[in-house]
Design a protein around this nucleic acid. Structure first.
Lengths: 210, 210
DNA sequence: TAGATTGTTAATCGATTAACAATC
DNA sequence: TAGATTGTTAATCGATTAACAATC
């Protein structure tokens, strides 16, 4: 029941989306409550870890009963900030940028895509998923006119640092970087570097071991 | 100098692609050798960890000198199996499937995309990145005629389990799953579940803490 | 109430870091 | 050779698991 005083380890935070996913699934199945033990079997982790993880945020269960699935799901969503209506822009309307824009997964988790930018004249003005592609030249204007929380970077590697800095300068607080470099900002800016080829490489490694 | 006897921790394997990336970058910059200490500064990890990690595979350095960048890079590539010419197919030619097919990152790491499949008649027969989209009905025929190592699953959630099983039944050894479920196969099949919304959610969390 | 299951403390395990002898 | 830096062992730290008292 302790307040959120001690810092939550990054490893715990990284597990939250997975809990969120499983609990969402349970809800869909109409399951109202679940014990840490039952959940541990489904998720293939220990019940101890589940209870420890949840207790970083102050215990959402009830002795003798377990956890209310819907309540726990919504609490984790709240912890992750999925109800904050975070706004995003995608910079780089290439294949990946377009795919992410068209994907509805992000919206489903409560993120609002409000702008797509590119520097290709032939793309600017076209629509992706109902949003008009704007020129990167208008990036600052847009960012000053609209609060943007998260920037999704699907620009070529060579452009990523400059683009990131422009976003940050205009108040963007988080960056999701898909290019083959690693962005590193000071503590003020949160960064997630996503390298799609990494899991493919570890797969390749695992296959060799078989 | 020990042989690859004790099992390499998963956490070490996961770091290999990152080393590979940094070493590739150093090569491009024309840097021939580097000490664990210099690399640790660049990568923002400890020199100790770097040396420990490499020693799981048997020490690639030289006392008093450091590591030969090109040699280390190629050794890590070898460990990851990037020279094995692993073949892949993409099942699901939606936005994400198309983006991955068009992306040249996978090829650059030595993976060969040899087939794309979908069930949409209007897509079948069209070309993506020079590869014709085939019908999923022909999946088994294709897999029997061609050795496929890794299957990349960009099908809707509802179809993923069945599709995965079909691939595995035909000898596919690894699966990269992009759908919003988690695949779990027995030890024989390697699986990497990639959830693109996870990093976005942890970003959202981190932003809240600032 | 008795049974179940949490919240939480204590024990264990594994991963990271420090230290240093080996050696290029 | 002297200096640098690895490979590797030992110490520390943190995360996971086990255990159990609290309590619904």
């Amino acid at each position: 029941m302790s307040e959120n005083i001690k810092k939550v380890p990054a490893v715990v935070v990284k597990r939250l989306p997975r809990y969120y996913r499983y609990l969402g699934e349970l809800m869909k199945q109409g399951i109202k409550r679940i014990s840490s033990n039952a959940l541990s079997v489904k998720m293939n982790v220990t019940a101890s870890q589940i209870r420890q993880d949840f207790n970083y945020f102050g215990g959402f269960g009830q002795q003798g009963y377990g956890y209310n699935v819907e309540h726990l799901h919504s609490e984790i969503g709240e912890i992750l900030g999925l109800n904050d209506g975070d706004t995003t822009v995608i910079v780089g309307a290439g294949n990946l940028g377009r795919a992410l824009a068209s994907h509805n997964t992000f919206e489903k988790r409560g993120f609002k895509l409000i702008g797509i930018f590119d520097n290709d004249e032939s793309i600017i003005g076209t629509e992706i998923n109902g949003i008009e592609v704007m020129s990167v030249d208008d990036l600052e204007d847009f960012l000053h006119a609209n609060r943007v929380d998260i920037g999704i970077l699907t620009v070529p590697k060579a452009a990523v640092v400059e683009t990131a800095e422009r976003l940050v300068k205009c108040g963007v607080k988080g960056l999701m970087n898909f290019s083959y470099t690693e962005l590193n900002f000071d503590k003020k800016v949160a960064v997630e570097n996503v390298h799609l080829s990494d899991p493919l490489m570890t797969l390749s490694y695992k296959i060799k071991q078989k």
